[in-house]
């Protein structure tokens, strides 16, 4: 009996081994373990055996069944894994193909620099304010101590619409507006940025360009001084233009400040050694700045005996060109998509 069981078991195991798919395996399973399966038949025949034989033979059959079942299970797993692998194989893609995207947008380089400047000054407690681009003579000149007849007001330098209305030539126009609008005459700490216009157009001057203007006014006791202006501009230059740059304050003349300075920065092209950009001087003129002229304070409602402060301004276009290595100013305004789309990532 034992041999018979062993024989069935061995035969079945052999068959299971040879099986090539799940369907055949199922057939063998039925043939061996099904209701009419060979091992089932042996079990069924137990009742014909002697009482004392039954447990022994039963145990043999169960042992054989267990072996077969275990092997079937193992083979089943093998087939399932195989099938799955086959399926995965079929689903394989070329992962080197490009991803699906929207077109990628970009921020204009000038506005990138403008946003950096805003962030810097906001972090120092400045408010960002705006003003009209279509200005009046009063705010663009008169209230900034540039009286009628002053050379800076020449028709040939400004875009006038009428005798009184013009496109602002400088963001300084906002200074007067802010001072005048502040009815309580409290301290002021502002910057303003935006488009400005001058009647010139050549390789290095665009008739439309961008400026930043800063104004700090406080009580005389607080004492906002030239040293404070120096410190402020040092931070501005080193954060916005370059960390290792030196500044040179060169006395100059503007009607709205006294004393007035032009601020040179170490030539960013040659590092101060002298090159064609800095005309061999090692310096590049970057900012105009100074202590607010008492007439400007007076004209806009601040008592120059009680208040004082500083103002500064600079063109943004050249700084943006320097930061990104833009070789021709015209790129900033022709808006070639091949230019614009280069500014599509974080700085």
């Amino acid at each position: 009996m034992k041999e018979k069981i062993e024989q069935i078991k061995q035969k079945t195991l052999e068959e299971i081994k040879k099986v090539t798919d799940l369907k055949n395996l199922e057939e063998i399973k039925i043939k061996a373990l099904g209701k009419k399966g060979e091992l089932t038949e042996v079990l069924k025949g137990l009742k014909d055996l002697a009482q004392e034989e039954r447990p022994k033979v039963g145990a043999w059959v169960n042992e054989a069944k267990a072996s077969v079942e275990e092997f079937i299970k193992k083979r089943e797993e093998e087939f399932k894994t195989f099938e799955l692998n086959k399926k995965l194989e079929n689903e394989k893609i070329d992962i080197t193909l490009p991803g699906n995207k929207l077109k990628r947008g970009s921020i204009h380089p000038l506005n990138r620099v403008i946003e950096d400047m805003e962030d810097l000054f906001v972090s120092m407690g400045y408010d960002v304010v705006t003003g009209p681009e279509l200005e009046t003579d009063e705010f663009c000149f008169e209230r900034l101590n540039v009286p009628k007849g002053h050379p800076a007001r020449d028709m040939q330098d400004s875009f006038y619409i009428t005798d009184e209305n013009l496109l602002r030539t400088q963001t300084s126009a906002v200074q007067a507006r802010v001072m005048l609008a502040n009815e309580d005459k409290t301290p002021i700490r502002i910057i303003t940025l935006g488009k400005t216009y001058r009647r010139e157009d050549d390789a290095t001057h665009s008739h439309q360009f961008n400026q930043i203007e800063g104004l700090v006014i406080d009580k005389k006791e607080v004492g906002v001084s030239l040293a404070d202006l120096k410190g402020t501009l040092e931070i501005f230059v080193r954060k916005i233009i370059g960390a290792n740059l030196d500044l040179r304050f060169r006395p100059s003349f503007f009607p709205f400040t006294e004393p007035s300075y032009e601020v040179d920065v170490t030539c960013f092209k040659c590092g101060g050694k002298g090159c064609n950009l800095c005309k061999q001087t090692g310096w590049i003129e970057v900012l105009g700045a100074g202590i607010v002229h008492p007439n400007v304070l007076k004209m806009n409602g601040y008592d120059p005996e009680k208040f004082g402060g500083f103002a500064f301004g600079t063109g943004i276009d050249r700084l943006a060109m320097f930061r990104y290595g833009i070789t021709d100013m015209r790129y900033l305004y022709t808006n070639d998509v091949r230019f614009l789309s280069q500014f599509d990532r974080k700085d």
């Binding site: 120092m124 407690g125 400045y126 408010d127 406080d218 607080v222 906002v224 404070d228 402020t232 060169r250």
Partner: peptide, 18 residues
């Protein structure tokens, strides 16, 4: 002016607004 040391204005703290 080179002989004048730069510093920052000592003014009451306030948050910049934009």
């Amino acid at each position: 002016v080179d002989n004048i040391q730069g510093k920052l204005p000592v003014v009451p703290m306030k948050m910049g607004h934009t």
